[in-house]
Design a protein around this nucleic acid. Structure first.
Lengths: 343, 343
DNA sequence: TCGCCTTCCCAAAGCGCTTTGGATGATTAA
DNA sequence: TTAATCATCCAAAGCGCTTTGGGAAGGCGA
């Protein structure tokens, strides 16, 4: 099937040792010999067997991603695909494999310890952190390098993470709406237990407080970020005795739902009502052009994937390089969905 | 770090051989001994090292998915996440690992041969087949079991695939629109070179021919299936001297774009104009409820992932079980987006 | 000339597992 | 009673690689 090191060595009249060293850039091999080996390897399309190599070195050369699939709310996070694409680029160019494991979410803990016990990965990325997420302590216990995409509040264990500045993002967005004299601003957020949702809400509340606006529970909602969720939220809130004059959405998918909900009622975004959404720059829902459809807090989740992977690889190379953290700022992009309050 | 077979054997005063056999269900081990071993293994959280195991057995216990990332049109296929989720479930419950490799699309060929040479996978799933896709022959040459998600026209090599009946689907959808007296039906399709797009177009043309309608090139469009693509297509076509009275969309994301495009012009789906879309049942864009938003040809891509994975595993177990094929029919689901022609 | 570095290569052990080919008693058939 | 058969176990080789610990030439200074 495929060439082995031994075969390659035999065909060159060299020992496996020398061939191995030649290909791995060790100094104790003659330059001419090295060239000869490299050429023969290329000609024979030789690639070292990953499993043998990592058995010998003790490094798996692979990073794991565990995707918990809740049995109750079976949503595959749409942000996930773009994040993975970004991370994958980095893994590929560094010779790492990406291992994905889809598990029922009550099995997630055992998935990690299984991954460690089997020695399948050198590190993992933790997705979708909740508030006080127990997985962080679990991973720390396992001694496996890991990086959280997002953060988790109320956890003492130090850990590495990459996050966007959710609080500031939504603070700014709210402030921006306030500057247009909006005082009834609805927040259509993600699931309550998600850490990012809480941070966004904090930013929102903070800005309201600063503007002297009393938050109205009727205008705050959390749930799985689907299109119909946005649609229903918009339609229901607009029927309130005191409807909102602006919406703040946690995902562009929800924003599309809100847009449709309002438009079905004959309301036009930017004129009759305002909307700011977070925009992860999902590739199939681009919100760009001269004047984007939505005013948005924008941050590329693809880029986040790239950076997260880079950080994790650094962590794998030097496990004691301490917790690595990065907070990405978002940009507030002006689109067509915002304007002054209509009276 | 983690327990090895040798350690486990030593702690039990048994040989590695016996422990291995006990855990792998071989008959030549005493029932009492087996129980003892199993208990000790569970207590010690023993899991065999994957790499060592697969080195010894020659099977990788892993399936590869290669995700080509075109440098020109950088769209991460939104359908992909749900397909992966379905396939992942099956891999996990069969003890297989899922390996994802993100590669620039001009490197895709070498990605496969690399995967084979390194012995990292026992099989691969081929995504996004084009018309006359060269990758099929390539994979057949490599001798690696593989399964195509979709099909490819004009390829002689026999191969295994799982596809939905795209042609029939769009035939039925077109026929359905014709039955409402629509005669100007626009097709907003995926990228021309994709095999599924061609099949859908064939179904569409076939039905038009049967209804005695001359296809109008002005009403046929292909492109990357984003929301703005649908929006633009709708807006432009509606301005034609002879605008369409119905749309046929290849993706629910495009359908949302069309919906928005029409609604911006004050047109209401189902009343002023009709729309049928293909619906992959993406979890964050559910098109269900009593009366779904869109009339659609529906087929769960998550389920497709499950079935594809199951088929591939069967193929890996028995490589000569011949090419396996499965054609999934879609259901035509009546929603609120269709109605008779408005005059 | 001798001894000591370098330079360049190799044999062999080992990573953690499976698997082949026995070995050892105990059990059974004749 | 003896040989053949079972039921259980084990030693050792091997999967394809890396890495430790030399070892043989050749070059150098004295």
């Amino acid at each position: 099937m495929s060439v082995t090191l031994k075969q390659l060595a035999a065909s060159l009249d060299l020992s496996p040792t020398t061939v191995s060293r030649a290909l791995n850039g060790f100094p104790e091999v003659n330059a001419a010999t090295r060239r000869r080996v490299e050429q023969a390897a290329a000609a024979a399309n030789y690639h070292p067997n990953t499993r043998a190599k990592s058995l010998a070195t003790g490094r798996a050369q692979a990073i794991g991603h565990v995707i918990p699939l809740s049995t109750s709310h079976e949503i595959v996070n749409p942000v996930f695909a773009d994040f993975i694409a970004g991370a994958g680029e980095v893994y590929a160019s560094n010779g790492y494999e990406m291992i994905l494991r889809v598990v029922p979410d009550d099995d997630e803990a055992s998935a990690y310890s299984d991954l460690v016990a089997r020695g399948s990965v050198d590190g993992v990325i933790l997705h979708g952190p909740r508030i006080e997420d127990a997985r962080v302590a679990l991973l720390a216990d396992l001694g496996l390098p890991f990086l959280v995409h997002g953060r988790t509040s109320g956890v003492n264990t130090p850990y590495s993470w990459l996050d966007i500045n959710n609080q500031r993002s939504f603070h700014r967005a709210t402030e921006f709406l306030c500057s247009f004299d909006h005082r009834r601003i609805a927040l259509i957020n993600g699931l309550e237990e998600m850490d990012f949702a809480q941070r966004r809400r904090n930013g929102y509340l903070e800005a309201l407080a600063k503007a002297g606006i009393e938050p109205d529970p009727m205008l705050m909602r959390q749930g799985e970020m689907t299109e119909p969720y946005g649609y229903r939220a918009a339609q229901e809130m607009i029927q309130l005795p005191e409807p909102p004059t602006a919406f703040l959405a946690s995902s562009i998918i929800v924003a599309y739902g809100i847009l449709r909900g309002l438009s079905d009622l004959g309301l036009k975004l930017g004129r009759d009502i305002s909307l700011v959404t977070h925009d992860d720059e999902l590739s199939y829902l681009p919100n760009d052009g001269d004047v984007p459809l939505f005013t948005a807090t924008r941050s590329s989740v693809r880029e986040a994937g790239r950076r997260a992977a880079t950080m994790l690889l650094r962590l794998v190379a030097k496990p004691d390089s301490g917790p690595l953290t990065e907070l990405m700022e978002t940009s507030l992009v002006l689109g067509a969905s915002t304007g002054p309050v209509r009276r």
